[in-house]
Design a protein around this nucleic acid. Structure first.
Lengths: 142, 142
DNA sequence: GCACATGCTTGAGGTTGTCAAGTATCGGCA
DNA sequence: TGCCGATACTTGACAACCTCAAGCATGTGC
C-alpha cells in the first residue's frame, strides 16, 4: 500500500474500472445502432472534421498494429464515411479525412456516447459539478 | 442542455470516456503479460474464488451472446484456470469455478489493473480522496 | 404428459487483433 | 550522385472474439 499514487488513487481507479467493465456493453450497443463496430467508432471519434490524421497516428491512438488500421479504414472508406488522401511533402503517408456523411455519423455517435450511465446520473448536481472539476484537473497539463 | 442528469453529468461522463479510450490499450497489454486475452481477463475478474457463477450470468456481465462464453471458458479450462461443474438442482446449468492456479492468475491480474493511470495519479492526495468519495457515492445503492 | 421456456453447445460468417514479409518513400552520408 | 537504413502502408496467414441460427438437454406450467 501507499505506493505511487497513494491508496486513494488505487481505490478510485479500481472503482472507475468497475464502471468501465459494467458499461463495457454500451459501446457495442451504440455502435450497432449506427451499423458500426466498436473499433470503427473509435476511429470515427478521432477524426475531427477538417483535421486529417495519418494512419500511423490512428494506430498509435488505438494502441494496435498498423496493419489493423488498414482493414478498419478499408471498411469505413467503402461505406463513404472517410477518404484516404496523399500529402505532397511525404508521399509515404496516407492521410484520413471524414466525408460529409462521416461527419454526420460521427455527430450522432458523439451525441449517443454523451448520455451518462446510471451511476453518474444518480449523483446530485453539486456532486456532478465536483466530479467535473476533479476530472478537468486530472487532464490539465499540470 | 440541462436534460436528464444535467450538463455536468454529460461533461463528466465525456471526460471519463476520454480516459477510457486513452487507456484502451492498457488491458490488452496487461492481459498479454499474463498470456490472456482481454475477454479472458474479464471473465477471470468476475470469478471470485469459491463463488461459482453460471455461464448465463457471465454472458450477461460481458453483455454478449452465450455462445461466445463457451469458447472463452473452453480456452481458460484447457489451461487449467477454471472448471465447469454441474449443480444438482438444475442440470441445465454449468457453473464455473476458478482453480487454485486460476485464483493465482486472477490475483496477479487484479494487482496489475489497480495501478492508476497518469491522469489519476497526478491528482493531489486530497483530490484523490474526494474522487474516491464521489465514486463510492455513485455506486452506492442510493 | 405436452408445450414452451431456459441453458448450453455447435457451426457459419464477419471483424479485430497479432506477426512476418513485401513495396514505396524518405533521410542521411559517402 | 548513389546506397543504406528507417518509416508508412499493405498483404497474407492465423487466432480470438462476436453474432446469429439451429440443435440438444433439462425445467416449468398447463
Amino acid at each position: 500500500m501507499w505506493k505511487t499514487g497513494g491508496a486513494h488513487a488505487a481505490e478510485a481507479w479500481t472503482l472507475l474500472l468497475e464502471l468501465l467493465l459494467a458499461e463495457r456493453g454500451r459501446l457495442p450497443a451504440i455502435a450497432a445502432t449506427l451499423r458500426l463496430s466498436p473499433a470503427q467508432c473509435h476511429v470515427l471519434h478521432l477524426l475531427e472534421p477538417g483535421r486529417p490524421v495519418s494512419m500511423r497516428r490512428i494506430a498509435d491512438a488505438l494502441a494496435c498494429d498498423a496493419s489493423n488500421v488498414t482493414g478498419i479504414v478499408d471498411r469505413l472508406e467503402a461505406r463513404g464515411l472517410l477518404q484516404r488522401r496523399v500529402v505532397a511533402h511525404d508521399r509515404r503517408l496516407r492521410v484520413i479525412v471524414v466525408t460529409r456523411r462521416g461527419a454526420a455519423a460521427r455527430a450522432r455517435l458523439l451525441a449517443r456516447l454523451a448520455a451518462p450511465p446510471p451511476p453518474i446520473a444518480r449523483l446530485s448536481r453539486a456532486e456532478q459539478r465536483a466530479l467535473c472539476t476533479l476530472l478537468r484537473r486530472a487532464f490539465a497539463p499540470t
